[in-house]
């Protein structure tokens, strides 16, 4: 490689590494803020190296798995409450509104709302988090033991 090209190649590499280092440091500094949500254990036990706890009334997002059997629906309104879990403690979510299609027990969800008690969140938005697994219903039945139920109404197409 002739010296001029070598110099240009070095300059280009230097730019890339320089900017890379800058972005890397910025992301490192923002690490905690880029996370979309708290997990239930982070909410209860504190987050980050300083074990910072969110304060009551803070607006936050929480992500976890809906505990099977914990979903309680109100008979007369859209109010629903359920518990979220990741690895340890449970957090209760109260929500009023329509839940997304993928919301079900055992499913990962992300809720946004206000912390009203240390382990209770009054959510105004509930999003379902889908996992990366894609499979036909018969396979899911065989692998995971999930029973696939046909919808009761007629959609005109064959599920």
């Amino acid at each position: 490689m002739n010296p001029r090209r070598k110099k240009r190649l070095l300059a280009v590499t230097a730019i890339v590494f320089g900017v890379g280092a800058v972005i890397g440091l910025v992301l490192y500094a923002l690490q905690e803020n880029i996370n979309l949500f708290y997990t239930p254990s982070e909410l209860i036990e504190g987050k980050g190296p300083n074990k910072e706890l969110p304060y009551i009334g803070q607006k936050l997002r929480i992500g976890g798995m809906v505990v099977p059997g914990s979903v309680v629906r109100d008979e007369t309104s859209l109010e629903v409450s359920f518990k979220l879990i990741d690895t340890g403690p449970l957090v209760t979510i109260r929500y009023q509104g329509i839940l997304p299609d993928l919301f079900r027990e055992g499913q990962g969800i992300v809720a946004q709302g206000l912390l009203v008690e240390p382990n209770v969140i009054e959510a105004f938005e509930v999003l379902a988090k889908h996992d990366e697994e894609y499979m036909p219903a018969e396979v899911a039945e065989a692998v995971k033991g999930i029973k696939h139920e046909k919808p009761k109404y007629n959609l005109g197409s064959d599920y």
């Binding site: 880029i34 996370n35 979309l36 992500g63 990366e132 697994e133």
Partner: peptide
């Protein structure tokens, strides 16, 4: 992988243990 995201992880990762069924 680095952060908690709403977007799911990669389905096509290791060639023989995909999280996606062969028929898809």
């Amino acid at each position: 992988e680095w952060w908690n995201t709403l977007h799911q992880g990669a389905s096509i990762t290791k060639f023989n243990t995909n999280a996606i069924d062969p028929s898809m």
